[in-house]
Simulated scan of single mutants.
Amino acid sequence: MNQELKNLAELYKNTLLENIIPFWSQYSVDWQQGGYFTCLDREGNIYDTDKFIWLQNRQIWTYSMFYNRLEQREDWLKIAENGAEFLAKYGRDEEGNWYFALDRAGNPLVQPYNIFSDCFAAMAFSQYALASGDEGAKEIALQAYNNVLRRQENPKGKYNKAYPGTRSLKSLAVPMILANLSLEMNWLLSSNQLEEILSQTIQEVMTDFLDAETGLMYEHVTPNGKHLDCFDGRLINPGHGIEAMWFVMDIAKRTNNLDLINQAVDVVLNILNFGWDREYQGIYYFMDVQGHPPQQLEWNQKLWWVHLETLVALLMGFDLTGRPECLEWFQKVHDYTWGHFSDSDHSEWFGYLDRKGEVLLNLKGGKWKGFFHVPRALYLCWQQLKTLS
């Protein structure tokens, strides 16, 4: 067993360091105008030059994180700096809210309609400030974080399309990202503020969004945690639910809360049993809890990030609890993930498969796929496997 885990640790490590990071370092950095190109085809050619704030900030975070936790390589810090300087200059409107998209030169294209741009800005500039010692980056991180706290009850603000008062629903995405973000920001927050926010988000996720009867994590519930019988109210997003659970485990291990850790592992296993495609393998993108047709036409696609976040959650669950079913599921998801998303002929991984596991798009980066889920998951799995072996 130990040798198998050692071999897996080497696989994850070598793929990260020799395949994934070099691809983005070579093809994505816009040294002329700042920031990054994320729309990259199978061979690294740029097919669109727009710059999406989520992905720009995620790339700053990832390079800064590797600089801080892996190796203090100047080229990684320089790449992070290239993005941080670009976004510090062009990323926000006059009120300090982060846009969704810019053109190549930094002119705004899409309004700041959601707080997730601010979430990833806070993550990015916190990690970059830690790497660079830049006081300005620290201020930007805190300003973005305070934006998130201020807007968490109404994430879309004036850009919310829903008619007020008719069907009020809150989304799992807000507390789950706030939990992870707060852990990321812990070196900038007072211990009291950190503990209060972590406690509040854990309570909300594990009480309001977790359904006690099915053991599944719902994507939307009413403000008081009830279910509504409609498309959004019945929606299960397996990837989100599983990713949220490794965030919960990460928080719970700080206080050695084994009950909470085991509860999170239970949810991961429940979601996998519900969301696994028994005919073609892999994890569905969206599901209806009652088995009705989901409104998302892409519901039965297989996405890279869903499988990668699942690998992280399963290894973390096994490391913290020793439960054998975590390792059994890990091997199953690992085999599917490496057999379908990894590109044996070119660098980086595919992102989108059809239900049968055939590649739908040969992109390696786009509007939603950037330098984040693949490298983060490979790094976290490598670290877990190294510990276990």
Rank of each mutant, 00 (worst) to 15 (best):
F125H: 00
G83P: 10
L183M: 14
G215E: 01
W329C: 04
T62P: 06
L178Y: 02
S182V: 12
N68P: 03
D288R: 05
V174F: 04
L8E: 09
Y352K: 13
W246Y: 06
N362T: 13
T62M: 10
D118I: 05
V248L: 06
W31P: 04
Y159I: 04
L70Y: 11
Y12I: 03
W338Q: 10
Q200L: 15
S389H: 11
L8A: 06
Y280G: 06
M245D: 04
L320S: 15
M217G: 03
G136Y: 07
K369I: 08
F274G: 01
G136Q: 10
F371Y: 10
A129N: 02
A80N: 04
S28R: 05
L216E: 01
M176L: 06
Q59M: 14
R151Q: 14
K78S: 15
L260S: 11
H240W: 01
I283G: 08
Y285E: 12
R58A: 07
P22L: 06
H346G: 07
F86R: 01
P22W: 15
Q200S: 12
E298S: 11
Y27S: 08
N114H: 11
D335H: 04
A121L: 00
E219H: 04
F86V: 00
M206Q: 11
M176Y: 03
S171H: 13
S342C: 08
S344N: 07
K356S: 10
T337P: 04
A141I: 02
A122L: 02
I60M: 14
Q301D: 13
V268G: 00
N186S: 09
V29F: 10
E213K: 09
I20V: 09
Y159T: 00
F341H: 07
W349R: 00
E139C: 14
L5Q: 08
G133T: 12
G357Y: 14
E18C: 09
L172T: 02
Y145Q: 01
D343H: 04
Q193M: 13
Q143N: 15
E325A: 09
R104W: 00
Y47M: 02
K170G: 07
